[in-house]
Amino acid sequence: MILLAIDCAASLCAASVHDADAGRELGRSVRDLGKGHAEHLMAVVGEALAQAGVAYADLGRIAVSTGPGSFTGVRVAVSAARGFSLALKVPAVGVTTLEALAAETRALLGPTTVLAALDAGREEIHAAVYDEKGQVLRQPGVLSLAEAAAIAASGRMALAGTAARLVADAVAVDKAFAFGPRLATADIGTYARIAAGKEPGERPRPVYLRAPDAKPQAGFVLPREQK
């Protein structure tokens, strides 16, 4: 099975073409954009397919990073993945940024429980906990720094994500932590490998742990016509 993975959850706009049967990457394209994922994603996908020597018709599955991360970037990637899935009549599989970071931590450190934590600003931490086999122990959610530190102090675990150092420094007891990647997202190949091992289920949905910052201005809302 040939799988296409895409990720726009952070500053990167990334695509990977992965041969699930051989367990190897065939091609990739990664651009560090910050913004503008919607304008670049199709070109990035095209570059990855061209490097792999693969056409859209050869794809058997789509994988996508579902967040948490950039509200706009996640929406762009998930919408594209669902569009590819519908057009190509192949399943789409979602992988969260937190489970991908936890998987990279286990690949680096060996089997271990991982607290994957992202600094979401506003004194919020977006976090989840995964066991040594990658099973979720605590679903992705919004925590205060104190709450995240309490979880980290409660047992033996490694830390990963942009808030990993913050959480470690906030732990009150003297405790040494092992660290995985302290990044906002994982390597695109990690998303592909995780998705290759998942059973397709419901269509991917963005993981939004808080409401978007942009809201409609009430002053411009037109009154409804009364009937």
Rank of each mutant, 00 (worst) to 15 (best):
R28M: 08
F177C: 08
A178H: 10
M42V: 09
L143I: 03
M42S: 05
P206W: 07
A43P: 01
R203Q: 15
L33C: 15
S144K: 09
S79K: 02
R138C: 06
P181L: 06
R203K: 15
A158P: 04
G73V: 12
L222P: 00
A15T: 00
R122C: 09
V129F: 08
H126S: 02
M1D: 04
K35V: 13
R28E: 08
T96E: 02
V54I: 15
A5K: 04
Y56C: 11
V95N: 04
P111M: 06
L145G: 11
T190Q: 08
D187K: 13
F179I: 12
S85Q: 10
K89C: 04
T162Y: 05
L143Y: 15
A184W: 02
G121F: 13
A148G: 15
A170L: 05
P68N: 07
Y208M: 07
I188P: 00
L145Q: 09
A50Q: 14
F179P: 11
G34S: 10
R165S: 13
A38Q: 12
A5D: 01
T105V: 12
E104M: 08
L109A: 14
A100L: 06
R156Y: 09
V173W: 06
G53W: 06
R205E: 15
G134V: 10
D187G: 10
D174C: 04
F84W: 15
A184D: 07
A149K: 07
C8L: 08
V90R: 12
Q135H: 03
F179Q: 12
L88T: 03
I194K: 07
A178D: 14
